[in-house]
């Protein structure tokens, strides 16, 4: 496995763009191709690109996110927005919508919130899978970026 300076820099620039694209996909998803799942995959690909370019340790230390917990939170969040239906005496997952669409975003309702939960779950699960596979030492023998010569404190 080699350490490519081009990939590392490009992926750093790509990261916010991919995250923005994923949010766009998420919001767009209700009536057009997109949605929580697709958006989540795009966001996860941003993280996975970082794993490929800079290694799993870099992703773990610089983001400080427990991706499994993110996925668990996403599941809880998604399942939460099915509850209003049950509380009002209707079926679970019954959709509730705001009457007026919000300019720029569109119609808002419980399915959008459900989709956000799916988005978080997909990011969490996919990135976690990639991280765990990438952390196998012999499967993916990536070196950490060399320490800067004048750095004093060792990186955590």
């Amino acid at each position: 496995m080699y350490d490519s300076i081009i990939l590392r820099n490009v992926s750093r620039l790509m990261f916010p763009i991919l995250l923005l694209l994923s949010l766009f996909m998420l919001v767009r998803g209700h009536n057009l191709p997109g949605g929580g799942f697709i958006g989540g995959l795009v966001a996860a690909s941003a993280f996975i690109l970082q794993i490929i370019a800079a290694g799993p340790t870099y992703v773990r230390t610089s983001f400080q996110i427990n991706f499994l917990n993110l996925a668990a939170f996403g599941v809880i969040f998604a399942a939460l927005w099915g509850l209003p239906g049950l509380v009002t005496g209707e079926a679970y997952m019954l959709a509730f919508w705001l009457k007026e669409p919000i300019p720029g975003i569109g119609k808002l309702g419980t399915p959008v919130l459900f989709d956000i939960g799916v988005y978080l779950t997909v990011i969490g699960v996919t990135t976690q899978l990639a991280l765990v596979l990438a952390e196998e030492p012999t499967l993916y023998p990536i070196q950490r970026p060399p320490a800067r010569p004048n750095a004093t404190a060792p990186e955590v």
Binding site: A72, V75, I76, A79, L83, Y92
Partner: peptide, 22 residues
């Protein structure tokens, strides 16, 4: 409609999520 049928699914799902977090 017997909406209570969702309960034995929702409760384990939520508690599995919370148990993961903690």
């Amino acid at each position: 409609m017997a909406h209570h049928l969702f309960l034995p699914l929702i409760v384990p799902l939520f508690s599995a999520g919370v148990a993961t977090l903690i």
